[in-house]
Design a protein around this nucleic acid. Structure first.
Length: 274
DNA sequence: CGTAGACCCTGCGCGC
DNA sequence: TGCGCGCAGGGTCTAC
C-alpha cells in the first residue's frame, strides 16, 4: 500500500467529494483489523456528524467532523477507501462502511487487515498513542539534513532502517526509502554514524523530491473519486531503483541489486551508491 | 537505549 | 490444472 504520497493523493481527491456531507450510520461488518474495531466508539464520535475537513499525519488519513471528533484511517499494506453509491454490491474484506446522507458510502476494504480505523476527540490527537511518538513530517517546515543528522546522533543503524523509522521521520516507506537513497547516491547499508553533514542534506533533499514528485504524478495519473468505480486505486509512479533488480542503473549502467534489510526488500546500485 | 528479527494476514504470480 | 513457495508498498513486539 500506500506510502505517504498515496495517502496524500487520497486526501486531496476524497475531500472534494465528502466535505459537507454527513455520516448517517457506521456499519461494522468484521471488527478484526490490526487493532479490533470499536463500533460503539466509532458511532459515538461520528454518527450524525458533518464532515468538516480532511487532514493527513504520517500515513494516517484524518477526517474531522463536527463536534470535535476525528476519524483516523490507516491503510496498512492493502487497505483502500472507496466512495460508492450505497446500492453497489459489497465486496469481500469490506470491514467498515460509513453511510453518508448523500446516499453514498465510504467503504474501507483491507484484505490483509494490517490497517486501522478508529475515532477520537480531535483535541486528544497529539497525545494519542498512535501519534504521540511520530517523528518529523518530511513535507513540513523544519525537515532538513540537519534535523535528520541530529536524530542520528548516538546511533549506528543502516541509513535505510533509520529512514524507515517512524519515530525519526514519518511517511518514508520501503519504496521511497530505496528511491531517496538511490537519488542521493547513498548505500542503504551505510551506518548513520558514517555520513557527513553534506550527505545528510543531499538525503533530506532527495526524500522531499521523491515524495513530492510521486504526489504530483498521483494527482495527474490517478482516477478521481468522481469516476464510476469510486476507487482511487493505487498508482504507478516511475521508480528508478525499486523493483528493478538486474536492470541497468540509469546513471552508471551497472545492474541494480536487491538485498534484504530489516526483513524488507532493498534495491540499490552498487556502482553509484556509496 | 538501540538494533535485529519474528510476526500479524490474505492474495498473487511463478515454477514445477 | 493444481500445488507449494516466495513475496507484497504497513507497523509492533520481543529478546539481546
Amino acid at each position: 500500500m500506500p506510502e505517504l504520497p498515496e495517502v496524500e493523493t487520497l486526501r486531496r481527491s476524497l475531500e472534494r467529494h465528502v466535505r459537507g456531507d454527513t455520516i448517517d450510520r457506521v456499519l461494522v461488518r468484521s471488527p478484526s483489523l490490526r487493532e479490533p474495531l470499536r463500533p460503539t466508539t466509532l458511532r459515538r464520535h461520528l454518527a450524525g456528524r458533518r464532515i468538516l475537513k480532511l487532514r493527513r499525519r504520517a500515513k494516517y488519513l484524518l477526517i474531522d467532523v463536527e463536534g470535535g471528533s476525528t476519524l483516523a484511517v490507516h491503510l496498512g499494506m492493502s487497505g483502500r477507501l472507496a466512495l460508492v453509491e450505497a446500492e453497489r454490491s459489497r465486496e469481500t474484506h469490506e470491514h467498515v462502511l460509513f453511510e453518508l446522507a448523500s446516499g453514498r458510502q465510504l467503504r474501507f476494504r483491507d484484505p490483509r487487515r494490517f490497517g486501522l480505523v478508529f475515532a477520537l476527540a480531535s483535541a486528544d490527537l497529539e497525545r494519542d498513542r498512535h501519534f504521540a511518538h511520530l517523528g518529523l513530517e518530511p513535507l513540513a517546515e523544519g525537515f532538513d539534513g540537519e534535523s535528520l543528522r541530529r536524530r542520528a546522533r548516538g546511533r549506528r543503524a543502516p541509513v535505510k532502517t533509520f529512514l524507515m523509522n517512524a519515530r525519526v521521520v514519518v511517511g518514508v516507506g520501503n519504496i521511497y526509502a530505496s528511491e531517496a537513497l538511490y537519488r542521493a547516491g547513498i548505500h542503504p547499508t551505510r551506518g548513520v554514524d558514517r555520513l557527513a553533514a553534506q550527505r545528510w542534506h543531499g538525503l533530506a533533499g532527495a526524500v522531499v523530491e521523491v515524495l513530492e514528485e510521486a504526489i504530483e504524478q498521483g494527482g495527474t495519473t490517478l482516477n478521481d473519486f468522481a469516476d464510476a468505480n469510486g476507487d482511487p486505486g493505487y498508482f504507478q509512479v516511475s521508480l528508478a531503483a525499486y523493483g528493478r533488480e538486474g536492470e541497468p542503473c540509469g546513471r552508471c549502467s551497472k545492474p541494480i541489486r536487491r538485498t534484504i534489510l530489516g526483513n524488507r526488500s532493498t534495491y540499490y546500485c552498487p556502482g553509484c551508491q556509496r
